[in-house]
Computed example of a mutant assay.
Amino acid sequence: MSGYATPTCADGHERMSFGCVFAVEQWAASIEAAEIILGHSQERWQRWIVMVIALMALAFFGKGLAAVGWAVLSDTAPKNMVGLSGGVFNGIGNIAGIITPVVIGYFVASTGSFNSALWFVAAHDLIGIFGYVVLAGPFERVVIEQRIPSNDRA
């Protein structure tokens, strides 16, 4: 599983991104806080509140895990093109941030329900998981060879 569960850096060392570690800690702390605040009562509304807090904590975990893309980008981009690569990466992400609300709005307007919109988001999540687990493989820095122009002009 090396290179799949944990990003492998260009130097061959495996490490988990700070964002992922922070997200796991935040998720665990949120669950503990919910149990301390609400106690271990079996009241129905309290169980719902704990579940909502747990789901929100899981969402924050996913947000932290999404930052792994930036760690992979900084480890794989050519050394002299990290800024350009980051800009392209961010631009594509911003395009998704424009298109997704439009598509979700279309689904809600045409069906009157968020069900198809949630399936749309879930499908993109599965595509992202598939991309990282199956397609990505080990991460290595891209090396671009610079050609030296020759003075031989015939």
Rank of each mutant, 00 (worst) to 15 (best):
M1R: 08
S2M: 12
G3E: 04
T6W: 09
T6L: 11
P7L: 08
T8V: 15
T8K: 12
T8M: 10
T8L: 11
C9T: 15
A10R: 05
G12C: 01
G12Q: 07
S17P: 14
F18D: 10
F18C: 09
G19M: 03
C20G: 06
C20H: 14
V21E: 07
V21N: 08
F22A: 13
F22K: 07
V24A: 08
Q26C: 15
A28I: 13
A29N: 04
E32Q: 14
E35N: 15
L38Y: 07
L38D: 00
S41M: 05
R44T: 13
R44V: 12
Q46N: 05
R47K: 14
M51P: 02
M51E: 09
M51F: 13
V52K: 06
I53R: 04
A54P: 06
A57R: 04
L58N: 11
A59L: 14
F60M: 14
F60G: 06
G64C: 04
G64R: 00
G64K: 01
G64A: 01
A67Q: 13
W70V: 11
V72G: 04
V72N: 01
L73A: 08
L73D: 02
A77L: 03
P78A: 01
K79E: 14
N80H: 12
N80G: 08
M81W: 07
V82C: 02
S85W: 04
G87C: 02
V88Q: 05
F89R: 06
N90P: 01
G93Y: 01
I99K: 03
T100M: 04
V102Y: 06
G105F: 01
Y106I: 09
V108R: 00
A109T: 06
G112H: 03
F114D: 08
N115V: 14
N115S: 14
S116L: 15
A117S: 10
L118P: 01
L118I: 07
W119T: 09
A122N: 07
A122D: 01
G128N: 07
I129V: 12
I129F: 10
V134C: 08
V134K: 04
V134N: 00
A136R: 14
P138R: 12
P138G: 03
E140H: 13
V142F: 09
V142S: 08
I144V: 12
S150Y: 00
D152C: 09
D152P: 05
R153G: 08
A154W: 12
A154Y: 12
